[in-house]
Design a protein around this nucleic acid. Sequence first.
RNA 1: GGGUGCUUAGCUCAGUUGGGAGAGCAUCGCCCUUACAAGGCGAGGGUCGCAGGUUCAAGCCCUGCAGCACCCA
Length: 945
Amino acid sequence: MLDKNYDPQTLEKNWYRFWEEQGYFVPSHTDGDTAYCIMIPPPNVTGSLHMGHAFQDTIMDALTRYHRMKGERTLWQAGSDHAGIATQMVVERLIDAEGKTRHDYGREKFVERIWDWKAESGGTITRQLRRMGSSLDWEHERFTMDEGLSEAVREVFVRLHEEGLIYRGKRLVNWDPVLHTAVSDLEVLSEEESGHMWDLRYPVVQPEGAEPFYMVVSTTRPETMLGDCAVAVNPEDERYKHLIGEFVELPLSGRRIPIIADEHADPEFGTGCVKITPAHDFNDNQVWQRHRDETAIADQPNGGLINIFTPDAAIRANEPEEGQLIPAAYIGLDRYAARKRIVADLESQGLLANIKDHRLQQPRGDRSGAVIEPYLTDQWYVRVQPLADPAIKAVENGDIRFVPDNWKNTYFEWMRNIQDWCISRQIWWGHRIPAWYDSEGNVYVGRSEDEVREKHGFGPEVELEQDPDVLDTWFSSALWPFSTLGWPEETERLKTFYPTSVLVTGFDIIFFWVARMIMMGLKFTGEVPFREVYIHGLVRDAHGDKMSKSKGNVLDPIDLIDGIELEPLVEKRVQGMMQPHLADKIARATRKDFPNGIPGFGTDAVRFTFAALASNGRDIKFDLGRTEGYRNFCNKLWNASRYVLMNTEDQDCGLGSEPIELSAADRWIRSRLDATTATVTESIDAYRFDLAAQAIYDFTWNEFCDWYLELSKPVLTGDSASDAAKRGTRQTLVRTLETLLRLAHPIMPFITEEIWQKVKPLAGVDGDTIMLAPYPTTDPAAADPQAVAEIDWVKQCILGIRRIKGEMNIAPGKPLPVLVTNASDQDRVWLETARPYLDFLARTESISVLSDESEAPESAIALVGGMKLLIPMAGLIDKDAELKRLDKEITRLTDDIARTEKKLQNPSFVDKAPEAVVQKERTKLADHAAAIANLQAQREKIAAL
RNA sequence: GGGUGCUUAGCUCAGUUGGGAGAGCAUCGCCCUUACAAGGCGAGGGUCGCAGGUUCAAGCCCUGCAGCACCCA
């Protein structure tokens, strides 16, 4: 028997360990012909589970469990990525506490230290994934820095390099001056901040003695003027057309720079003149590329591409051959000190035209918070275009399908404007670039130093030094779908599971990850990495705000499962807040949103919530109220199961040879279960987990619990039913419950397993776990329109009587005599067969069929089709209340009938609408008209009292 | 500026070739009836953002407008 109370905390504790120990997550346990595989988007090894993960993992686990139950060879590949910068920073912070930097350790020792850290603390998220019930194949868990995956990385790098698809180049990158590395666009967050716009006056070079004349340029970063190589104006701009080809004198450094014509200069914006600083601005760099061959630009130092910063973003010193390119006064100043000084100097020379307050998009590194500088560095790049073309085609021709479909547009948009990919990073933790330099700086790429030496015939006397940089973490992530399966080896796993079935991910990384996996997969395996991409929404807080640590509105999924008191929750949210006023604000908001903390809802309720919220939308506002509702749902299922067990354990459930008899209710619920199975299956197949959850919820609560369990009571407890009928009902109870549990298992694994273990012997089912039990299938023979019609009729009778009781304030438990008039033959049959149901559920004291309506005393009335149910009013029913009730019903029907009549009077409707639609309206009109007549007559009768 | 999506009950959201406006939570009334008060029974609540158009018929299709969100520049 199940415990009296549903307690997710205790029941969820043991099942996961059981599943994992039994090896149920390993695909060998299912040996179907078809394979099904999902790659987990590898979580960051430093990370902990957030709501986005929990949501995504619920979906992947539901899909995995669903397909596993369908008997397919199912693999959900586990693993995590090494998160280069994030992980390095974590460990740097740790050794900072020892008073050391990574340089004190040295590269080798420092990397060892990171491995130690990983061994010790890197498992947080995998533990949390287990709490979520995720049926990942942990036995084959992979890590992007594993030897096997590292080999795949080297192999890919070397092959791409051999084909000329990887090259080294000096380009502008997003430079983090604190971390001293290039960072990807994804790691740069631009937010609007307050700043200033400075208008600088650049004197136009004029003949001796001419009146001074200035070009005014605007900038938010005045210090970059030291690196200007030109001033650009729009070629169509009448104000400046005549100056094109002239020069201005760059203030402070005294260089002469040309005035050039370029579309980039917007005549409408500011003065219409733009300073061009190609080494420190992405747009300016484009302008420079268009004009670099013009003499006036080419003659500039370094061809006009003038870097002014050190890696710290301080003003650099001059190289020996550069003379005074950078004025001595600013050398060594940090960018902001230099800015101040330069503005002051310009002002004192009368060259500062204006300073305005200005809102600007400030790019900051998401890890360091430092303002990112476009910076000129030597980096490794992947030439993407040749890889992108087949990747675009794969989606165009349907080899890969996006769900929802529109996301392919986002994908195309990005892929068609794709830029070469900067893959090198100036950090220590990651896959070291397999390139070696000789003493002259020549570069050799190979799988190892030995391979390089052998290939080029270098003896031991040749000194080779490996490139110090490592690869972008996304480089290894791009190989994830095949590297985890053993590539470049031709393993059995690779053959079985690649291409994988579906990728489940958020739209925020379509560019960075999805696109790159497609490119790399096609390039190195010749096949797509996955056949479908299911893009889900982003989980937001109840107010619709993105959850973020700095906003202090994050929810920890584990807290939803286990519960958390208010004070620890507040503490958790304000922890590590730099600004105290923000901490206060967060504490206040938290106390308001969660005055009593968060109760523990259990994993199944949390998972059910995620499933129910997984519609096609982009934003998912997480509403705790729904989690509470679904926790209640778990409780409902629990208690319904207790009822089933109480009435079936140690009883004959029709498994043997004794005859059984199925009632209308039995056949009805079997029919409804079958329809629900169809809906759930179709919904999961269409990635509509919200509809699947809804169907399960509806069936369980509104049909199984509210009606079928109640309808089973008179059969099981009364003495009117035969033994065969009792067996039939018991069998239906256990079979329906057992099937329902399997139906719901992919979404709520724990509670279904717990109950299933108790129910399976009663239902005559074998198996050690519901995980590997077959998923329910539909049965065409289960549809039973007659049973459905009868039970619908029963429900109408019961609802009608209940409504009278409810509205007349008669205690629901009070037995009442009921008179029936105008009963058809069918009604009379059902009145016999359904009598126990009516007595039990509507508490009817007696039911008498009157052949002559005039015999009926004054009564309250309920209509079931043409049949009238009458409850005599004497001493029970208030005349005015019944009149009011009748009026309400008459009004409702009259309004409805007016619309229907209008429709039917319209000749074009009758003419053009499909016959079935017209017929439906006619039937409705007739039914309503009859009902109104009945009610009207009743009303007059009562009003006359 | 370009693109994508959203606007349905107080709140969060479904609504699948156009033909009955729905769920959960919240609200109101009655009930501790031995599966379940984390519950039962009953009730109220919507000009489906606005304005046009197509159609016999529009929450759904088309056009315009407004507001919101995100992405790209």
